[in-house]
């Protein structure tokens, strides 16, 4: 095939390709971008995060505790309180807590 290529045609062609690529990849790029942000920055404008972080991946893979987990570490606090009790009482209290938990769970 012989074709005379005018500059305008080439420009139009590449504009089309660029528009297509943006149309296709924008939502995906945004998804990737948000995955590198802190939760509080999620709705910041722009596709490149201003404060990039790997936090979300660390939380996902279990290297780090999320805020939600840290706020709800009742278990840990409870254990620490029990440790302050006299030694002979510790076992009894733990057993009681366990029994209580079981009772609460059985409702479901």
């Amino acid at each position: 095939m012989v074709k005379k290529k005018s500059f305008l045609r080439t420009l139009g062609f590449w504009t089309l390709i660029a528009a297509l690529v943006i149309f296709v990849t924008y939502p995906f790029a945004w998804m990737v971008s948000v995955s590198f942000r802190y939760d509080t920055d999620a709705f910041e404008p722009g596709i490149i995060p201003k404060r990039p972080t790997l936090d979300t991946y660390a939380i996902l893979l279990g290297f780090k505790k999320s805020v939600r987990e840290e706020l709800s570490n009742e278990q840990q606090q409870l254990l620490e309180i029990i440790k302050t009790l006299p030694e002979e009482q510790q076992a009894a209290v733990l057993a009681q807590i366990k029994a209580q938990r079981k009772k609460n769970l059985s409702h479901f």
Binding site: P27, F28, W30
Partner: peptide
């Protein structure tokens, strides 16, 4: 091929953001 292969729920959130 990206639109077709990304997980639906992730891409739905991206579109809701748009």
């Amino acid at each position: 091929l990206l639109p077709y292969v990304t997980p639906l729920i992730a891409i739905v959130f991206a579109w809701k953001y748009i």
